[in-house]
Design a protein around this nucleic acid. Structure first.
Lengths: 98, 98
DNA sequence: TAAAAGTGCTTTGTTTTTCAAAGTTAAATA
DNA sequence: TATTTAACTTTGAAAAACAAAGCACTTTTA
């Protein structure tokens, strides 16, 4: 029998990064504070998970302004979409035996 | 919007415990060494994750013999089945928006 | 029958990950 | 001018993951 967990992506072991990705799949662009509120996280904690996802090139950061106020938004990359999908496929395969 | 990750069970954040449960859902009983081989783990690592699942009463241990050789097997409990299902439901709800 | 090997752990110690709290910079508002 | 907000970074502590070694017991092999 094949190792059922081998195809899971380590980056998505974290519930928070999983949550971020699931939000980004359905929202083209989302702000730091929106994510923070949705996932109920502290600034530092969210920032570090976003950083991990950015390092992996699964998300992209957009620094801009709303009026003259800074605003940081995030979006998923093609690579991110692909990796997330692969992870979900692996998950599904694991449990599809139900 | 509701926090999408709030209903995920912390115990199943671990890929290994997730793997164990997914195996136990489809196998009434499985041995220590079988699990070890399937998931490609060291003894200590597997034992400690099994211990976590046992503490949570998600799995049950059976110590017995095959012939005169000792054999330890594991099975899922009703509570474990329920918790695992709830976790999968929560996961599905997160990503069903696809 | 003595040595080797297997089962199923526990213990130890290191590495990795997670997280909160506090500090920071710059702009906005009161 | 003082305070607040945004979006971090840094620091440090706690938790989790993991490998390796040790162990008690039994069985198999030489």
């Amino acid at each position: 029998m094949k190792n059922p967990i081998a195809d899971l992506n380590k980056i998505f072991d974290s519930r928070i990064r999983l949550g971020v990705m699931s939000i980004l799949v359905v929202n083209d662009e989302i702000g730091f504070n929106d994510l923070k509120q949705m996932l109920e996280l502290t600034d530092g904690n969210l920032a570090s998970h976003l950083n991990t996802l950015e390092q992996a090139e699964f998300i992209k950061v957009h620094k801009g302004f709303i009026g003259r106020k800074t605003s940081t938004t995030y979006s998923i990359t093609a690579l991110g979409k692909q990796a997330f999908k692969a992870h979900l496929d692996a998950l599904e395969k694991m449990i599809k035996k139900l």
